[in-house]
Simulated assay, not measured.
Amino acid sequence: MISPTFFPDDSHQTLKSDNDRRLSSCFELSGDWTHAPVQPFKQQLSDVLQQEEIEVIYFAEGKGFRWDSGTMAFILYCQRLCQSHNCTLDVRQLPDDIQSLLKLATSVPPNQEDNKKYIDYFQVFRQSLGWIKDWLRFFGEVGLSLQNMIRGRSDARWSDGINFLHQAGPSAVPIVTLLSFLVGMILAYLGTVQLRQFGAEVYVANLVGLGMVREMGALMTAIIMAGRTGASYAAQLGTMQVNEEIDALTTLGIKPVDYLVLPRMLALIVAMPLLVIYSNILGMLGGAMVAVSMDITPRMYYYQLSQAFSMMDVMTGVVKSVVFGGLIGFAGCYAGLRCGRSSAAVGQATMAAVVTAIVYLVIADAGLNILYFHLGI
């Protein structure tokens, strides 16, 4: 006998056990079972099944029995618990609605498949191969579009290119200014911590100057543009894909790569070197602010800076910026044109554009640095 459980309306529920014979047991469900805490009843049924060899469990409707979906879940649990102990749960004495729902819930047997997830390596290989083929196809389309532009047969509208150039260049100046200045200060602080041990704080100008023109200026600007302009390209083209504007251009005989992709990529390629040179200057000014606070005169800082790098060092960063600009534009436009037909797909395309562009940038930066090292630049 289970002690009753009281509810706010002073009704109660009971679960009575009456062993008619050794191999069967009857449980009477009575009272209000809506929102009932059934864990004690589960435990009682489990104890009964473990202590006695019972073949059949009967569930009967008692006085004032009220039930809800939680009661159905409890009965389903009891049925599975009985099955695990080679016992049968008989619910024919319960309301017809419960019997119908229980029959529906057990019409399909539970999935007995092993929970281990096996990787279909062949499927992964096929998907990777398909992605590579699609990537190469888009790369070839961009190459053909560039060839058509050189021959004067491109469908591009260069008035749009001026607008894209403004978006990729002057519109990005504020964020580039802030981050480049702070990066220069960070480089200066890091260098000062180490150089102070040798009394060589003046060489912080060499560290900031060479670090900005060869590496940090181009890379940081590229990352900024990947999150700003690359994502913008993906969102714009993805929205056009959702609105079927790209399909309309194709129907009119206008090549989407010529009309939409090439002007964006060229605008970014043109704007990136200018932004990188600007970033280099701002980074050096940020380093100068830190150097002056370390008792280094502006003249000393300028002199060390002029001796720190050559024009070849500046050109290495500029070449990187051109490559980075092309990669950012390629990643953004590729993700936008391969966007799905829903609003959620636009968000996924934007995210893919940023992540892919950053991966491209890191790989390209490592490759160019290795190339520069072997060329002695």
Rank of each mutant, 00 (worst) to 15 (best):
residue 2 I to P: 12
residue 3 S to L: 12
residue 5 T to K: 13
residue 6 F to R: 15
residue 10 D to S: 10
residue 16 K to L: 08
residue 18 D to Q: 12
residue 20 D to T: 14
residue 20 D to E: 14
residue 25 S to Y: 12
residue 26 C to Q: 14
residue 32 D to F: 09
residue 36 A to Q: 14
residue 43 Q to I: 11
residue 46 S to M: 05
residue 46 S to F: 11
residue 48 V to F: 11
residue 49 L to I: 01
residue 54 I to K: 12
residue 54 I to R: 14
residue 58 Y to L: 03
residue 59 F to K: 04
residue 61 E to S: 10
residue 62 G to H: 09
residue 65 F to G: 07
residue 67 W to I: 10
residue 69 S to R: 08
residue 73 A to S: 10
residue 75 I to Q: 14
residue 75 I to K: 10
residue 76 L to Q: 14
residue 81 L to K: 15
residue 88 T to N: 05
residue 94 L to E: 14
residue 95 P to H: 04
residue 104 L to V: 13
residue 114 D to F: 10
residue 114 D to G: 11
residue 115 N to P: 05
residue 116 K to M: 11
residue 123 Q to S: 15
residue 127 Q to S: 13
residue 130 G to F: 05
residue 131 W to R: 01
residue 132 I to M: 13
residue 134 D to R: 07
residue 137 R to E: 10
residue 140 G to S: 13
residue 141 E to D: 15
residue 150 I to T: 11
residue 152 G to P: 13
residue 155 D to C: 10
residue 158 W to Y: 15
residue 160 D to P: 01
residue 162 I to F: 12
residue 165 L to I: 13
residue 166 H to Y: 12
residue 172 A to N: 08
residue 174 P to F: 07
residue 177 T to G: 07
residue 177 T to Y: 06
residue 179 L to Y: 05
residue 181 F to R: 05
residue 186 I to C: 03
residue 190 L to Y: 03
residue 194 Q to W: 01
residue 197 Q to G: 02
residue 198 F to L: 07
residue 206 N to I: 00
residue 209 G to Q: 01
residue 214 R to Y: 04
residue 219 L to S: 01
residue 219 L to H: 00
residue 221 T to S: 06
residue 224 I to P: 01
residue 226 A to V: 08
residue 229 T to M: 02
residue 232 S to I: 04
residue 233 Y to V: 03
residue 247 D to M: 04
residue 249 L to D: 04
residue 255 K to Q: 12
residue 259 Y to A: 13
residue 264 R to G: 05
residue 270 V to Q: 03
residue 276 V to I: 04
residue 280 N to H: 04
residue 282 L to I: 07
residue 283 G to R: 08
residue 285 L to C: 12
residue 287 G to N: 08
residue 290 V to H: 09
residue 294 M to W: 09
residue 301 Y to V: 07
residue 303 Y to R: 11
residue 315 M to C: 12
residue 317 G to I: 00
residue 319 V to Q: 03
residue 320 K to D: 12
residue 323 V to E: 01
residue 325 G to F: 03
residue 326 G to T: 07
residue 328 I to S: 04
residue 329 G to K: 06
residue 333 C to K: 03
residue 333 C to N: 05
residue 336 G to A: 08
residue 337 L to W: 06
residue 341 R to F: 00
residue 348 Q to M: 01
residue 351 M to K: 06
residue 364 A to W: 12
residue 365 D to Y: 03
